[in-house]
Design a protein around this nucleic acid. Structure first.
Lengths: 341, 341
DNA sequence: TTGTAGGCGTTATCAT
DNA sequence: ATGATAACGCCTACAA
């Protein structure tokens, strides 16, 4: 069961011409006899010859392969993102080598080393939530493999990255709640080490102060994104006297756990307390308690953008110390109160 | 920004030894002088030398890459499956080239041709729901690239495949409904051309006849798996006089659309009509109307199994006309009526 | 118009 | 104990 692919060498042999003639004929080289061209192409078709991309790329010292490293493909955000990456890759004749970190920095590193050994032409990565040191990634970039971060990006400026402005979305979100009359706005944020969390927190604080409201840290909780962590956070919020009338969750998964728990505690979701969130999952409308509003982050578009960016980074048509920082837009998607429940 | 990886040649040059000496030293060849070995390894470390996998595989005429073609990574079933594939692949030092068909046979073919050009060592595929002719796949296999189908597999016996026994699960499902007293059992099945649909239908018929119940085709509807198709099917079932008391949906996505519509029509889900389904999505417990029961098909395990199978197929330690047919188990997961609603 | 030869990085087979 | 060389499939500069 070992592969048996015809080569130009075999074609040359059978036609009694040189290998280069076959190669040129196949490439429609101008100064090859028209009848030689025909004979070569005919036999190539007959033998079902297909150029060996591996050999070509080996010679060219490239692979036409982009490594894509995601925390977890199970999350809809990332499955959408990789679809965008794939679509753009296809357009530029690149293929995708796939790997997951499962939010484990050690696995993440292993995956990336493997991709490096495979000599991928570039790497697109959304960092694991537990990753803090990315020095080895900078080394890989120095070694000549460009890296583009997306969504979960490092804070530093000396990297290529694609992300959306969560800070601004958060301000919009708070303003939306404010305009609907909510004043006691709580937040269940993600782990503090994430840029994503910091941006939410900063936007939250900024929006409140813009509205001359004091930031009450009793209303601020965090979760490690597990069901237990979220439940604990929600529990604390519900135990407050003079508790919140609105809750902003880190994302729709946190939202689902938070509302599930709150419901069990007798809260009338979106009536007693308004819930808003980020991600805008497609199953939202089938869930028991959709958020009133969710921030759409266009993962598909972010994926496409990441691919475009790495293509540019690979071309290297930029200053040696220039880094792409591509910001992609977000939208507040209002689900309203008139859902199926 | 072009890659600049050190090679054994450079090491050899700098050490004034031959290329082969470097190669052997790096491989701990027994009869290389211990101090030469040290010098080589030292410099290799210093230069951050890493063997070029592309070159090695090129020489070995392999790639250590497995192509994985899925209909849509957005479906949780497939995102779980690819995780299983990846886990097993890592164990065997294979990497994953990723592609989606989006249920379009033309795209599917394009993806596979591209993988063939890349000389993947094998292909794992779950067929697009609209694919009917797989002759070109057989050709690829003849050319030396083994193919393993999983979940959405062809009916023919002359292919390697991994799948679960939906026929039997369906019988179990009907029996479960029967034991709970349901007698008017409807089914919203998938497209007739799918093996998955045929197995459901056959299991359904078989179970009913085993219980001496007549098969009433008024209770049998199909959907093209779109929201509209499912809504239409559900509508027909609800319009029947002496309508069903239980509905089996093709999968949890169909279930969600069916129950959403039924709810809007005033049906009390799982009270007026019992709903059961296949897939056992992880978000089930967050949905407005979870099925009473869902068939767990262990996509992660199926993925692992598919990888194991293709490894065996690649080794070719089997008769030329022997094909693996690996059946993986299923489980009925009971969600009960005591969910959050 | 066609052929020859070198090279991409590595390993393996022969020498020495 | 180490070196030289061929080979994997393809492309291309240079010859003829």
């Amino acid at each position: 069961m070992s592969a048996n692919h015809p080569t130009i060498k075999e074609i040359a042999l059978r036609l009694n011409v040189s290998i280069s003639t076959v190669s040129r004929a196949l490439h429609d080289h101008p100064r090859i006899g028209i009848k030689t061209k025909e004979r070569v192409k005919e036999l190539a078709r007959e033998m079902k010859y297909e150029p060996n991309a591996q050999a070509i790329f080996f010679k060219q010292q490239k692979t036409a392969v982009i490594g894509v490293v995601l925390p977890s493909i199970k999350e809809e955000f990332f499955s959408q993102a990789i679809s965008g990456i794939e679509a753009a890759a296809t357009q530029y004749d690149y293929t995708i080598l796939f790997g997951q970190s499962h939010d484990d920095p050690a696995i993440e590193k292993r995956v990336i080393e493997s991709m490096k050994r495979q000599r991928v032409d570039g790497i697109i990565i959304s960092l694991s939530k537990n990753t803090n040191k990315i020095s080895y990634l900078k080394e890989i970039e120095t070694a000549g493999i460009p890296i583009v971060f997306f969504d979960r990006v490092p804070d530093q400026p000396d990297v290529h990255k694609v992300y959306c402005d969560i800070y601004k979305s958060t301000i919009d979100m708070v303003n939306w709640l404010y305009s609907r009359g909510y004043r006691k706005i709580a937040m269940i944020n993600g782990p503090a080490n994430l840029t994503a969390s910091r941006e939410r927190l900063e936007g939250y604080k900024q929006a409140l102060s813009q509205k001359k409201m004091k930031v009450d840290m009793r209303y601020f909780e965090t979760t490690d994104l597990t069901k237990e962590g979220t439940t604990t956070a929600m529990k604390k919020l519900l135990s407050l006297k003079n508790g919140p009338t609105a809750v902003i969750s880190f994302n729709d998964y946190v939202h689902m756990d938070a509302t599930q728990y709150a419901h069990m505690q007798g809260i009338n979701i979106n009536k007693d307390i308004a819930f808003v969130s980020y991600s805008n999952l497609s199953i939202t409308d089938y869930t028991a308690f959709p958020p009133l509003l969710s921030v759409e982050q266009y993962p598909y578009g972010q994926g496409e953008q990441a691919m475009e960016t790495i293509i540019r980074a690979m071309k290297g048509e930029h200053e040696k110390d220039f880094f792409y920082h591509e910001e992609v837009p977000t939208t507040l998607v209002i689900h309203g109160t008139n859902h199926i429940r």
